Simulated assay, not measured.
Amino acid sequence: MTLTADPAILVLEDGTRHRGRAYGARGTTLGEVVFATGMTGYQETLTDPSYAGQIVLQTAPHIGNTGMNDEDPESRRIWVAGYIVRDPSRVVSNWRADTSLDAALVADGIVGISGVDTRAVTRHIRSAGSMRGGIFSGADAALDPQEQLRQVREAPQMAGLNLSAQVSVADAVMVPARGERVGSVALIDLGIKQASIENLASRGFDVHVLPHDATYEQLAALGVDAVFYSNGPGDPAAADDQVALLRRVLDDRIPFFGICFGNQLLGRALGFGTYKLPFGHRGINQPVLDKATGRVEITAHNHGFAVDAPREGITDSPNGYGRVEVSHIGLNDNVVEGLRALDIPAFSVQYHPEAAGGPHDANHLFDRFADMVRTHREDAH
């Protein structure tokens, strides 16, 4: 691969400008600039629908040396709004690679920039908070600086955005259980990764992947044993329809497991609020305390919002679902990383236990979900 000499400029909404080289597709892209701390797993990051609407900056300096392959994507395409790297690999050095990262970005129309001091941009975002930005590459790099800044400042804020419709499946899909069958689960696709589907199927669930706007009547017609809310992009405060659906699930005491966006929506359904984090958690090295066991797990994250719930003790659900406790705490900043209902069969975590990419410390949560479904069925009989 020959790296381009075409110019590119990263413009932040506070007027900060960083010059670099075009990487991926040429043109203009706008979005919320966020940083991801993983040193590996960039293919899983790029194909994670949770990153829709976001320009992702990789803090690891050297990106692309393993290329891209046809086995590891977590969804049907690359979803990031844009991509920022310091030193893109000049060659692909992995036997599994089917194409280069640069070629994959071009194929999906993802505008990127390389040759940027990513450490300086990361430190700026950590101080000032996540902000809107734009990458202008190729001919667009020559646009008037004030015009570039105007476009960035007129881009939509992430707060208030409901992006699930952009990333969800259009039609229902069923993935059959593998091994001993536990039951069936309705998976509401708010931006699901393939690894979550595989983890549920391997635990004995027939997985009904449903669109973001699935109704309670559709769930009832399927006769599912449980409901799962996936990760996904956008502001949980803008997902009223999914919260209303979840409340009906909780009313009927159908076992529920939510991850990431699903954790935030469980928080809302229980009656708690959500808020936007200054710069969010993104990467595969986030330490989380499991309060029940005292164990610290290293986990994969991608979220810019969090649940506002009491971190200590047991709280009554403001919406009448009984007792609730915060089950997990982020050790970097004390953010709520999990919820557990004590009087109904429901729990959630803010991180990604399917570990795509990332560590496998939290993979056991899928076993916990299967055990909860078995126990609920036995109690019902």
Rank of each mutant, 00 (worst) to 15 (best):
I9L: 14
L10S: 06
E13A: 15
T28K: 13
G31C: 10
F35A: 13
A36Q: 08
T37L: 14
Y42E: 04
Y42A: 06
T45H: 08
A52W: 05
G53A: 11
Q54T: 12
I55Y: 04
L57T: 07
T59C: 09
T59P: 01
T59E: 13
A60V: 11
P61I: 08
M68Q: 00
M68W: 04
N69A: 07
E71W: 10
G82T: 05
G82D: 06
G82F: 04
D87S: 12
P88E: 02
S89G: 14
S89Y: 05
V91G: 11
N94A: 14
W95A: 14
R96D: 09
I110F: 00
V111F: 03
I113E: 03
G115A: 07
D117E: 13
V121W: 00
R123N: 14
R126Q: 15
A142Y: 11
L143I: 08
E147G: 12
L149N: 09
R150A: 15
P156C: 13
G160K: 13
V167G: 00
A170M: 13
R181T: 13
R181I: 09
S184E: 08
S196T: 14
I197N: 01
R203A: 07
G204S: 04
V209A: 06
H212E: 14
T215R: 14
Y216W: 15
E217D: 15
A220N: 11
A221P: 02
G223N: 12
G223Q: 14
V224P: 06
A226C: 07
S230F: 01
N231W: 00
G234W: 01
P236L: 09
A237T: 10
V243M: 08
L245T: 07
L250K: 05
D252W: 07
I259A: 03
F261S: 00
G262Q: 03
Q264F: 05
L265Y: 00
L265M: 14
L266M: 11
A269G: 08
P278H: 12
G280D: 04
I284D: 13
Q286W: 10
V288D: 01
T293W: 00
E297D: 15
H303I: 07
A306C: 13
V307Y: 02
P310Y: 00
T315K: 05
T315W: 01
S317A: 09
G320W: 04
R323K: 11
G330E: 06
E337G: 10
L342D: 05
S348F: 02
A355N: 08
A356I: 05
G358S: 08
A362Q: 02
D371A: 13
M372D: 02
H376D: 12
A380N: 12
